[in-house]
Write a protein that binds this DNA or RNA. Structure first.
Length: 284
DNA sequence: CACTTGACCTGTCCGC
DNA sequence: TGCGGACAGGTCAAGT
């Protein structure tokens, strides 16, 4: 899916436009994409939009919330009422093509705006829950620290990673209980910035390497947000626009291309059946 | 405990 | 052009 920077990008694009808006209608076009009580969210007003790890939260009045996980192919596209008319200001073609055949859920607000949840592969989900129950949900409760918060530091990263000392560092970075929000793209990028080979076992890393990794994770996630996320196939922000981060990526999806730092050929290997990209010269 | 495989789904791309 | 296989921002569960 969308990893932390992509979900954050969607959150930033969505919150200004839907806070204060009241839900009017909800259409569920694929039953497995939505769980919970539709009646509970109908006529409720959005009061807060937030992100935890790769999960987007929307708090509504009357103590109800929506939790959204986009998994591999989810999109959230907001189309204002005006955009549908001549004279509106759609910023992408995709906004004018809603809904499409991968639209799974449609939220309509009283001001005429519609929020489309599209998901080609149907792995993603939206759950209606009680706001007060969120912290106790297992997929929230066991999440590791948010990497971009002030309280996160290299020692915490080290301690959490060392729970899996015999695991390859690339695999361990994808473990959402170690730290939350890093996925397959940014794991490769963070290891490049830290100059660490992805196959290194966690237990072999030195303190200097944990420090570099901490900085690398933060840097690459911040860059991801700065450039509006990564679009490999179908990620778009809430306005239907693609992200630019992959133009700036050092290794991800660049197999056999030149390393931007040393010129060597970038290699691709598979770890746990996921692609891992790295520079065999810069990374040790 | 750590790794592998399968599952959940659809679409695209590449080689023959 | 068609067909089969591999692969794709994620995460579970089960088996070894």
């Amino acid at each position: 899916m969308p990893e932390l920077p992509e979900v954050e990008t969607i959150k930033l694009g969505l919150e200004r436009k839907i806070i204060g808006q009241k839900l009017a209608q909800i259409q569920v076009l694929n039953n497995n994409s939505f769980s919970g009580n539709i009646a509970a969210i109908k006529n409720q007003e959005v009061i807060h939009v937030w992100r935890r790890a790769k999960i987007l939260g929307v708090d509504l009045t009357e103590g109800v919330s929506l939790l959204i996980h986009l998994k591999m192919s989810g999109q959230l596209i907001l189309v204002s009422g005006q955009d549908k008319f001549f004279g509106g200001h759609p910023t992408s073609d995709i906004m004018l093509q809603m809904p499409n055949k991968s639209t799974r859920v449609i939220f309509e607000f009283k001001n005429g705006a519609k929020l489309y949840f599209n998901d080609i592969r149907k792995f993603g989900w939206i759950k209606q829950v009680k706001t007060q129950d969120i912290q106790d949900l297992s997929f929230i409760k066991f999440l590791g620290p948010e990497p971009l918060t002030d309280s996160f530091n290299w020692q915490i990263l080290k301690t959490n990673l060392l729970r899996r000392p015999k695991t390859a560092i690339k695999i361990a970075l994808l473990d959402q209980t170690v730290l939350s929000g890093v996925g397959n793209i940014y794991a490769s990028e963070a290891l490049f910035l830290a100059k660490i080979l992805p196959k290194r076992l966690v237990g072999t890393l030195t303190d200097a390497e944990f420090k570099r990794l901490f900085k690398g994770i933060r840097k690459t996630l911040e860059q991801g947000i700065k450039y509006g996320g990564s679009t490999r196939a179908n990620f778009v922000n809430a306005a239907g626009e693609k992200g630019d981060f992959l133009s700036y990526a050092f290794v991800y999806n660049r197999a056999s291309e030149d390393c931007k730092r040393c010129g060597s050929a970038i290699l691709k290997i598979n770890q746990a059946r996921r692609g891992t990209y790295f520079c065999p010269v810069c990374q040790k």
